[in-house]
Simulated assay, not measured.
Amino acid sequence: MLGHHASAQETSITEWKKDRDESHEPPKSIRENEAGASTLPKWSFGLNAGYAHRLFRGGQVTSHDEQEYIKDLKSGIAFGGDIAWFPWKHVGFGLRYEMYKGNAERDSSQSEKVTIQHLSGAVIHRSFLKNGKTAILTSLLLGYQPYENRSAVGRQEFTFSGKTMNWGVSVGIEQPISPKFALNLTGTAMMGAIYRLQRKTAINTETLHLSKDDSVDLSRFSLTLGFRFM
């Protein structure tokens, strides 16, 4: 009887321990998510390129040639790179560089070649789709933006240059291809305006102070395709 009682007690203790162990073990899905989070890279570097469109108003257009000229001047290409650091799973910080180039020409009598650069810091929010791999990256950008316009009217050549602060937002989707490589598609909207320009010619340089109505609007939208190393 004592042996039977001891055996029953041991069984009871064993079952109690089993129940306790199981109750503290997280579900399989949670364990998988935690394992996935621990393997996420904290650093990444990306390169991208694509189409960009400036958003300035062209003023009063009186001819088809002017309309086509402004259309060409607004359209351009954007390319650059960025580096990101994620100390947490969903929040990170980064640096981004982008160069915009656009040009327009009309009847060989007028032309403009525009270069806009921006170097900005970024606060990045990262979320994941249900598959746990595809990421949505939303960034708030704030930084520095130099501008240059090499233009010509007839035989007279000018170079306009300036710099300003800029801010913007971007939203992208990133799909890993391997543990160290991913593809991304990103849409970015940048805002900024210049109120002081330097105008250089072959013989002199002068500073132009612009009113709000005459300021150079650098606002633009870009859609880029890129790849990222992680």
Rank of each mutant, 00 (worst) to 15 (best):
N103G: 08
H24D: 03
K200C: 01
E206H: 14
P176E: 06
G81W: 00
D72Y: 09
H4E: 14
I30G: 02
I203V: 11
A35Q: 05
K18H: 13
R228E: 06
N204T: 15
V123S: 08
T11I: 01
T62D: 05
T39C: 04
E68C: 07
N103Y: 05
E34V: 08
Y100G: 00
E206M: 15
S44N: 08
Q60A: 06
T164M: 02
L47N: 01
I203F: 09
S139D: 10
L141T: 00
L137R: 14
V91R: 03
M99H: 12
T224Q: 15
I124R: 13
T164H: 05
K133F: 10
E10V: 13
L208S: 02
P26K: 12
V216W: 00
T11A: 13
K42T: 09
Y195E: 06
K28N: 04
S44F: 02
R220G: 00
L40E: 15
T62E: 04
E10I: 10
A84W: 07
V216G: 00
P41D: 00
S23M: 03
K18I: 07
A78H: 05
A135T: 13
F79W: 12
H4A: 10
F181I: 10
H24E: 10
E22N: 12
Q156W: 03
L210T: 04
D19W: 08
Q198V: 15
P87S: 07
L119Y: 09
R57H: 08
S7T: 09
H5P: 01
S44E: 07
F93N: 00
S12W: 11
F181D: 02
D213R: 11
G226S: 04
L208H: 02
I30F: 11
Y144Q: 01
W85G: 08
A49N: 03
G50M: 02
W85E: 08
E34W: 05
R54L: 01
K42S: 13
Q67M: 03
T62P: 03
G59Y: 05
P26S: 05
A6H: 14
L55G: 05
W85Q: 06
T39V: 10
S178M: 06
K18D: 12
G154K: 06
W16V: 08
I70Y: 14
S29C: 04
L40R: 15
H90F: 03
W167R: 11
K71T: 02
N48R: 08
H53I: 00
D213A: 13
K212I: 02
Q9R: 09
Q175D: 00
S151Y: 05
T186R: 14
H24Q: 13
K17T: 07
V123F: 14
T201C: 11
H209D: 09
P179Y: 09
G94C: 00
P41F: 00
N204Y: 15
W85K: 06
H209T: 07
K163Q: 13
G187K: 14
I13L: 14
H24M: 11
N166A: 04
I194Q: 10
T159F: 04
S29I: 11
N33A: 15
M1V: 06
H24N: 12
G132I: 02
